[in-house]
């Protein structure tokens, strides 16, 4: 069983709002100095899903990411959790690529890896929450895809998936190779073990360039971008607290109801 997991490095989603800053002129997020990036939590769950399959059936897990050498940290994190190999695809021509281009780059990388039975991705990245990349990768590779999985099992050479819907879940059975994107309902990603971290620390992580994965330059970078970021702002939240008092519960609830009605009308 050859499993490939696509992972992304993002700004720590546990940052307090006070540490979150944007450069308005350049339309960019300013990462807080000194706080390291982390693996996208949905991608960590994809690694977890892969590890569960490996725990049961055996196999080999390769994690793949796009970015500069600093992405090594999240690759090592996945290795520490139990993945077998790590791989970084890095090139300046990839800068400012959008989700479609990222899907293309990953697909090219996966083609170069060659052998795979199952590809796992997070349902979306917790920074931009687009949720596009998995589908694009599947499209480029011409393999079936199921998104938002809460359970992934390999049975008799096929993959069984429970997919989260708004009012429950649906079950799919797919031929391999296939691509599955994983949702938070899968559970919790395991914490790396001590020995896992130690072994991952000295593991070689190859870096492939755009040329090595035979990139068609017209498909990547800013020029190929299909969407454009218009404006980046930090929303401001205003909170007010008002105590509603009255003689008895009846009066208080009546006052509360009229307050709520008032706000409905106004906003």
């Amino acid at each position: 069983m050859e499993i490939i997991v696509c992972i992304k490095q993002i700004l720590d989603p546990d940052l307090p709002p006070a540490k979150f800053m944007v450069d308005k002129e350049r339309n960019k997020v300013i990462p807080p100095e000194g706080i390291p990036f982390v693996i996208n939590p949905y991608d960590a769950l994809a690694v977890e899903a892969a590890l569960k399959i490996k725990d049961e059936k055996g196999g080999k897990i390769t994690v793949i990411t796009i970015g500069d050498k600093s992405t090594e940290d999240i690759v090592r994190k996945a290795l520490a959790m139990g993945a077998d190999e790590g791989l970084i695809i890095s090139d300046t021509i990839f800068e400012e690529s959008d989700s479609f281009a990222v899907g293309y780059i990953l697909a090219q990388g996966i083609k170069k890896i060659g052998r795979y039975d199952l590809i796992l991705c997070g349902r979306q990245a917790a920074d931009w929450d687009n949720g596009v990349v998995g589908s694009v990768v599947a499209e480029y590779l011409g393999i079936p895809i199921v998104t938002r999985a809460k359970d992934v099992k390999v049975v008799n050479g096929r993959v069984n998936v429970e997919r989260v819907t708004t009012d429950g879940f649906e079950t799919f059975e797919l031929e391999l190779p296939a691509l599955i994107t994983v949702s938070s309902e899968l559970g919790q990603a395991r914490l790396p073990s001590g020995w896992g971290i130690i072994k991952a620390a000295s593991k070689e992580i190859p870096i492939w360039s755009g040329k090595e994965i035979e990139t068609d330059i017209s498909k990547v970078g800013k020029k190929a971008s299909r969407n454009q970021l218009m404006r980046l702002i930090i929303p401001s939240y205003e909170r007010r607290c008002e105590f509603i008092t009255g003689e008895d519960l009846h009066e208080i609830s009546a006052k509360l109801t009229s307050k709520l009605m008032e706000r409905r009308i106004h906003e």
Binding site: D12, D14, L15, P16, P17, A18, K19, I35
Partner: peptide, 11 residues
């Protein structure tokens, strides 16, 4: 103090 603590990152 709540305002101060809200500035820090906690996991």
């Amino acid at each position: 103090v709540e305002e101060k603590l809200a500035l820090n990152k906690f996991d």
